[in-house]
């Protein structure tokens, strides 16, 4: 039997078993969140930082359902529209549990939720200087992706299409260019709509994908989580196996020799 080379995945210093990272937003309740996360096989989940509800002491909280000691929490800056807000959020997240590996997103526009790349670059520089390992949500512009890497980003996270749109991979050429030039992991973040989109991203050579809405907003989120798990493994194996070349004409699969 052919022994396959061990396929490891590392972001910053963090070794991950799964190349699927899942978000924890938009679910019906925490119970469903926990079940979907488990079915996805992900060992890293994104979480947001918000004010605690001080009036309702009995309200369930995320950490009761997803144990941060068992699954890697990746604090994000969702909802931050400038560098100051994003830095404040991540410094608080670090204080909460010592998290140095974080996901930075500085949004630029409420309608498209496109990242403000100028603020994103500046924030990345500051966070890297403060010792953070920064995974950065960004546009699919190869030049900005390169600049982020030069600033010390731990992972480049270009969007497939706008956040929550489910439109899938809209610019395969750019994503491929980013993959080719990057020495840090490239993780497609945002816009994936269904399992096959994730497979396509992985076949292009992405190191991982981050999925939230496509699982949480599926009719059966737990089953969709399993579908994504398989899709990512499949896409990765397909990438590693190396696809056949394309031909414009047919090439028979059975030999002509010995034909009766």
């Amino acid at each position: 039997m052919v022994k396959l080379k061990k396929d490891t995945f590392k972001i910053g210093n963090k070794k991950l078993k799964s190349r699927l990272i899942v978000g924890t937003g938009k679910y019906k309740n925490f119970y469903e969140t926990a079940k979907a996360v488990k079915a996805s096989g992900a060992d890293m989940v994104t979480v947001a930082v918000r004010r605690i509800n001080i009036l309702d002491k009995k309200k369930p909280i995320l950490t009761d359902y997803l144990n941060p000691k068992k699954i890697v929490y990746l604090p994000n800056t969702a909802g931050c529209f400038n560098s100051i807000e994003a830095l404040r959020t991540l410094r608080l997240a670090r204080e909460m549990g010592g998290w140095k590996l974080v996901k930075l997103e500085v949004l630029g526009d409420k309608k498209t939720l496109y990242p403000n790349m100028i603020e994103t670059l500046e924030s990345t520089k500051i966070l890297v200087k403060e010792g953070f390992k920064v995974m950065v949500y960004c546009t699919d512009d190869p030049l900005f992706a390169k600049k982020l890497e030069d600033c010390g980003a731990s992972a480049i996270m270009p969007l497939a299409s706008p956040i929550g749109s489910g439109l899938g991979l809209q610019n395969k050429i750019n994503i491929s260019m980013i993959i080719k030039q990057s020495r840090v992991p490239v993780i497609v973040d945002a816009g994936i709509g269904t399992a096959s989109d994730a497979t396509i991203a992985m076949e292009l050579g992405c190191d991982g994908v981050l999925i939230n809405s496509a699982i949480a907003k599926a009719k059966k989120p737990v089953l969709m989580a399993k579908a994504f798990k398989d899709a990512v493994i499949s896409g990765r194996n397909s990438y590693l196996a190396g696809r056949m070349s394309k031909n414009n004409l047919a090439i028979p699969s059975s030999p002509y020799k010995g034909l009766i």
Binding site: G23, T24, K26, R51, L62, T63, Y73, A78, L92, E95
Partner: peptide, 27 residues
């Protein structure tokens, strides 16, 4: 940001602004 070790030492006074945050679900 107040580190955990200073919670007992930090006394509150009139007009102070306190934010208590935690993790919630997010993508």
């Amino acid at each position: 940001i107040i580190p955990k070790g200073s919670f007992k030492k930090k006394y509150l006074k009139h007009n102070d602004k306190i934010e208590i945050v935690h993790f919630i679900g997010g993508g």
